[in-house]
Write a protein that binds this DNA or RNA. Structure first.
Length: 278
DNA sequence: CAGCAATGTCTAGAACTGGC
DNA sequence: GCCAGTTCTAGACATTGCTG
């Protein structure tokens, strides 16, 4: 396939293999020399960076070395400890430390990063590196905390915006959804008021469901009906979407007009059901 | 489309590397 | 700036039902 492509494609495409599953020859897939520790780990003296990462992750999964609380953190067993010199390492830090073990083939005695920056003279992973990693991990943790704070603030502001919108809608006297409706005797008993907007009914219903822990733990869309809900829906359990449908039977127009289309449909189906049973 | 809910899927972005 | 490789997470979005 590659050979055919070489004939068909102009020069720049020589080095790019199009087929899936075929290793490309880009900078990442360049074969590099590995440090003695890494050689011992992967069992080969030379390997592409991407392949090294793949092997390490396969090992991590095989030995179940990911921290269950934060799966980006890798718990180092003996083999990994000999590589990284720490008890645990962040998955991103791992790549950084790994670079000290991957050297260009042309100058085997020089780590990739050092060749580039010329910062250090010692090729092995020093204690200084370990300290740097630990310090960087602390910084990462702080950043993560800041990020969490940001997210929670965003959520709060979102809630506030939603509340503001809600208030404005109420101020306006309610549109189609916030229009007050008359409730059936069963729903009146449940809500404690004779009239309520559909959205409010749904809201109160859900707060009741949560309060009484009535969601099926296996499928939280499924509501387990207690006595009060059974009086409303006449079933032992109901899907949260079906609940809305069933609810419409209990929500009637305020002026005492005939029930809506859906209710009419329900009545029709009830009629059909009765006729069928006859 | 507004509101209400839970869940699933998808996507982007996060770190890091060197060559082109 | 893109390419490969890794995992996790947040956010967006669709779904489903109802009505004006």
């Amino acid at each position: 396939m590659c050979i055919q492509l070489q004939f068909l494609l102009p020069f720049p495409f020589f080095i790019i293999w199009v087929d899936k599953g075929v290793v490309k020859r880009g900078g990442f897939n360049k074969i590099c020399s590995l440090s003695p520790q890494l050689q011992e780990f992967v069992g080969e003296p030379e390997m592409a960076r991407t392949e090294v990462v793949k092997r390490i992750w396969a090992y991590i999964r095989e030995k179940d070395l990911q921290d269950p609380k934060n799966r980006r953190n890798i718990r180092c067993d003996e083999s990994l400890h000999s590589l990284f010199r720490v008890n645990s390492i962040n998955m991103f830090q791992m790549n950084k430390v790994l670079s000290k073990h991957i050297w260009p083939l042309s100058r085997e005695d020089e780590p990739v990063k050092q060749k580039k920056k010329g910062e250090e003279s010692d090729h092995s992973v020093s204690e200084g590196d370990v300290n740097n990693v630990a310090q960087e991990e602390e910084e990462v943790e702080e950043e993560e905390e800041e990020e969490e704070e940001k997210v929670s603030k965003q959520k709060e502001s979102k809630k506030r915006r939603a509340a503001k919108v809600d208030k404005e809608v109420k101020k306006r006297g309610g549109g189609g959804f916030t229009k007050l409706c008359s409730l059936s005797p069963e729903l009146q008993k449940f809500m404690g008021v004779p009239e309520l907007a559909r959205t409010e009914v749904v809201k109160k219903l859900w707060s009741y469901i949560r309060e009484n822990n009535l969601q099926d733990p296996n499928n939280k869309r499924e509501i387990i009906c207690d006595e009060s809900l059974r009086a409303l829906f006449d079933v032992d359990s109901i899907n949260m979407f079906q609940m809305n449908k069933a609810l419409s039977k209990h929500i009637l127009p305020l002026n005492g007009e005939a029930p809506d289309n859906a209710s009419r449909k329900d009545k029709q189906s009830e009629q059909e059901h009765e006729e069928g049973s006859l």
